[in-house]
Amino acid sequence: MLADLLAFDFLRHTFITGLLIGFIGPLLGAFIVVRRLSLIADALSHVTLAGIAFGLLLEKRFAIFILPPFYGGMAFSVIGALLIEKLRSLYHSYQEIGIPIILSGGVGLSVIFISLANGFNNDLFNYLFGSVSAVSRNDLLTITGITMIVTIIIILFYKEFMALSFDEEHATISGIHAKAIHFMFIVLTALVIAASIRIVGVLLVSALMTLPVAAAMRLTKGFKQTIIVSIIFGEIAVIIGLITGYYFSIPPGGTIVMVSIIILLLSILKKSKTTGHNGGVQHGYE
């Protein structure tokens, strides 16, 4: 693929996009995992699917191109994110209740749009499992924009995101505006998911955000370190996954996730080798 990269534009687009989502996926994923919200990514990816299906439906049945599937997915994802936040504040003691509601809503809508359009065949398959050839120049520009926005906001609000993720009550008392920060965070999540779907697909996008983090957490002590190692793992998974996916004509979502799982298994093996079976309690006693 590396040689082909120079020859084919569309592959170069795919490869760069892969590097970008291999960066922002685990970056945001680190916060999602520590807040135990891994399922939010799944819920939002299914809402994104509904948006994509809606865009495809408009294209196929009505030949309307105002909402290309990619942007339809992004719009639905952001709306889904806002609904989850709304439900979170409505059901104060059941913070995660929004997730199954939004997830099933997303699947329900997707099914309806897909059957209204009498199925989409190949296109839909690409969206479900990812594709090496799906990234247009425009998509690449949008995803680059999203990457820049996400990175800048995370750098600017790093300390607030971290404090809120660690101990929401304490952070709120100390004067951090939890609501506004959460809102920003969930919108970023929606954008990252929409950006990642082209390559890893709806069904596997949450894996790219959570598996590298799960692996990194076993090897690191601090949060910043976890983020850095997660990103390295994410990039390794994307690079190897894209190349093997292209080589064997497998949707890259599948290969990227399998590489992530191998990294996770290796990290589990390494950890249990270095600390024995007691799970790494190194500082329990004085």
Partner: peptide, 16 residues
């Protein structure tokens, strides 16, 4: 399970 060092946890008190 939060992977934070003591230094990071204490610094969260300063964030606001």
């Amino acid at each position: 399970g939060f992977p934070a060092t003591v230094r990071e946890v204490v610094s969260m008190g300063l964030a606001a």
